[in-house]
Amino acid sequence: MTLPQPGPASDPIADLGALLGQLAGDQGEAAAASPPAAPPGTEPVYRNVEEFVATYLAHVVERRLAAGPTSGLNWCPRWWAHPEAISRLYALWRAWETLRVSDSQTGMSIWWRDHLDPHLAALAAEYGPFNRCTPDKHTEPRPLPVEPVPPEVLAQLPDANSL
């Protein structure tokens, strides 16, 4: 997956739309709002990740929010402006839509245990994408520093011929 490259002329909304398209396995922007595949006759509950977060997740997750010296969940009101957050929340939405249909008995329990809990912990962690945000303030994400890989290093990799 190729993540959007921030730059002076970068449009964060378009970049995130492209990222969502990649997450959905499509190259076009239309994939950003397309619902996950469901069995025939089964419609998704939520049209897209934004609706899922705003209408469902924000209402069922009950955590004390961090604010100043108070401990609690780090959360950003502009969650969609953090590439890691949008990727994780998109995955949560897709897993939720799949498990509610494929396992009506224990699917939601599995979703909480195997999907929401680890993703929410990573998003809200001390070093997670929301670590510099508060419920009242968004801080722009900072990509990890990356230097170009020397060609002689790439040539040693097993898949060097496919590059």
Rank of each mutant, 00 (worst) to 15 (best):
L154S: 12
W80T: 06
E62M: 14
H59V: 03
R113Y: 05
V149E: 11
L23E: 07
H119D: 10
L65C: 08
S102A: 14
V101W: 05
S71K: 14
N74S: 13
P135M: 02
S71M: 12
L92F: 02
T98P: 05
V45Q: 10
E140T: 14
W75Q: 09
P36Q: 03
P40I: 00
G25R: 02
A31S: 05
E147V: 09
A33I: 06
V61F: 08
E126T: 14
A121V: 02
L116M: 07
T134V: 09
H119N: 08
P148R: 02
L73D: 03
P77R: 03
E147P: 05
P35M: 02
G25A: 07
V53D: 01
P77I: 02
P35H: 00
A54E: 15
A30G: 06
W111N: 02
E62N: 14
E140P: 06
Y56L: 15
P141M: 07
E84D: 15
N131A: 15
P141A: 03
P40W: 00
W93C: 01
S34P: 07
W75R: 13
Y46L: 10
S102N: 14
D114Y: 06
D136G: 11
L73G: 03
H119S: 13
Y56E: 04
P141E: 01
P150C: 13
R94I: 02
D26Y: 03
W96F: 15
Y90W: 15
T55Y: 05
Y56Q: 08
E147C: 07
T106L: 13
P36D: 01
T70I: 08
R100V: 09
W96Q: 03
G128S: 06
P150K: 09
E84Q: 13
